[in-house]
């Protein structure tokens, strides 16, 4: 079993684990996701049609409308939010959205999670300690 540890800064505390869903595309909230299903709907997005519900969502950051936080807030109310989020670029959109999702969230990593975590890897996030434990799926 290949286990890799990443260290980051706490955005929202808590502990969670699950399967990784990874994208190199930044994500739009309003106009980018459907909170009822948790699916990405942006036409040109590599995750278009894929749901982040109950996944550990690994992404570069947020883009687009200021409705970002509201749409991920609605996703939490609809039960479609990810289990935890890991992102690289702090903006007001993604930080406020993370607070609204109320799931463990980390950023500012010692190594780029996008180069280490792949779809299907098992990821344990301890946001209080700032630690991400990645178990590679093919190991």
């Amino acid at each position: 079993m290949t286990r890799i540890l990443l260290h980051g800064r706490k955005v929202v505390g808590g502990v969670s684990e699950g399967e990784a869903l990874v994208t190199r595309d930044t994500i739009s909230g309003w106009g980018g996701i459907d909170p009822r299903t948790g699916k990405v709907v942006e036409t040109h997005h590599e995750l278009c049609g894929v749901s982040f519900k109950d996944k550990i969502l690994v992404f570069p950051g947020a883009k687009g409308s200021s409705g970002w936080s509201q749409y991920f807030h609605l996703a939490r109310l609809a039960g479609t939010a990810p289990k935890a989020i890991l992102y690289n670029r702090t903006t007001t959109k993604v930080a406020l959205g993370a607070v609204m999702m109320r799931v463990p969230a980390l950023t500012d990593f010692d190594r780029d999670p996008l180069s280490i975590i792949e779809n299907g890897d098992w990821v344990r996030v301890d946001a209080d300690q700032g630690i991400v434990e990645v178990t590679k799926k093919d190991s």
């Binding site: 687009g64 409308s65 200021s66 409705g67 970002w68 936080s69 509201q70 807030h73 903006t91 007001t92 959109k93 406020l96 959205g97 607070v99 609204m100």
Partner: peptide, 25 residues
């Protein structure tokens, strides 16, 4: 301010200072 198109106008054309805020903030 919310509204991404207003935020970019506010910062750039007016020279006032705002991040892209959300409904809650």
């Amino acid at each position: 301010w919310m509204e991404s198109s207003a935020v970019i106008y506010c910062n750039s054309v007016v020279g006032a200072r705002t991040n892209t805020e959300g409904r809650e903030s």
